[in-house]
């Protein structure tokens, strides 16, 4: 009898199977394959493509010696901190706060513009950003109009260019999160604080921000994960150059695997990135579970 209900219980969950198979083959599979391949000398072409040899920790030892890897790790941290944690997060919050105080028409127009940069296909956004920052692009036109220096941004300041471009591209997400969060703050609370003589900044710092701290934590985790994975924007704008000056981990993994044909080493870089993502993912899920309790 017990066995029968067990079988019935399993049968009831049969419809989950297609999803589980897809996830196992195409998500879990590649992650496990990555762990394995990062211990081999798998190549893109030639003998090592068909019969890779097990080389143990050699790829990971190379990561420690290769001067490009720490550079790339540092650039990734800079990219995430600069464009997501500081840029998108603070600008998104500022936009959301301003939109509550501005006239409805103004906030609708500006909101649409910000969201448009985010809804565009990533390759189109990347081309637009490339044109904007190129030597004779819009930014230098503006600087020239002000009588300032006009550097070649993509060559002299590649990280500044990709960080700014990613802020432009991704701020809409934070803005939408914070608009929804601010809408859930009851206006009575703010009114009461106003009666007690709290100014705008005080209300924001002591009342509003603490009330939406859950949304802030969620938003920070999600934009960090999204920004860690950014490839197309950087690839189109600088291709990681000049001389690795803007090659974050996704770019480095791609270059090593497909440009230099060293799948094993590229996969080791990718594995590091997957592990970083997994740590942030685990923290995010913990935050979420705690907020549900």
């Amino acid at each position: 009898m017990a066995a029968q209900t067990g079988v019935r219980g399993l049968l009831r969950y049969l419809p989950v199977l297609p999803a589980v198979v897809l996830l196992a083959v195409f998500l879990a599979g590649p992650v496990l394959w990555a762990l394995h391949a990062s211990f081999t000398n798998a190549g893109l072409t030639g003998r090592n493509a068909r019969n890779p040899d097990w080389i143990g920790l050699e790829n990971y030892q190379r990561l420690l010696v290769d001067p490009v890897f720490p550079l790339s790790l540092g650039l990734t941290v800079l990219f995430v901190l600069g464009s997501a944690v500081l840029g998108q997060n603070l600008l998104g919050l500022a936009l959301a706060v301003l939109m509550r105080r501005a006239r409805r028409a103004v906030s609708a127009v500006v909101g649409t513009t910000v969201v448009a940069a985010w809804v565009l296909p990533e390759i189109v956004a990347a081309f637009a950003a490339y044109a904007y920052f190129s030597r004779d692009g819009t930014l230098n036109q503006l600087l020239g109009g002000l009588g300032l220096d006009q550097p070649d941004w993509l060559y002299s300041w590649p990280m500044a260019a990709v960080v700014l471009a990613n802020i432009w591209r991704g701020t809409a997400f934070s803005m939408l999160v914070y608009r929804a969060a601010l809408n859930d703050v009851p206006s009575e609370v703010a009114e009461a604080a106003q009666m007690d003589g709290a100014g705008g900044w005080q209300r924001l710092a002591y009342i509003t921000l603490p009330m939406i701290r859950g949304s802030i934590a969620t938003n920070l985790m999600l934009i960090t994960l999204q920004t860690l994975a950014v490839f197309t924007l950087i690839w189109v704008m600088t291709a990681g150059g000049p001389a690795n000056a803007s090659s974050t981990l996704p770019i480095l993994a791609y270059q090593e695997a497909f440009r230099f044909g060293d799948i094993g080493y590229g996969t080791a870089v990718a594995t590091v990135l997957i592990l970083i993502g997994a740590v942030f993912g685990a923290v995010y899920i913990r935050l979420l579970r705690e907020s549900k309790r």
Binding site: A34, L249, P250, A270, L273, Y284
Partner: peptide
């Protein structure tokens, strides 16, 4: 939460 760009090399 998985960074999809990171698994593209293994997926290839």
């Amino acid at each position: 939460c998985l960074p999809i760009t990171a698994i593209m090399v293994p997926v290839y």
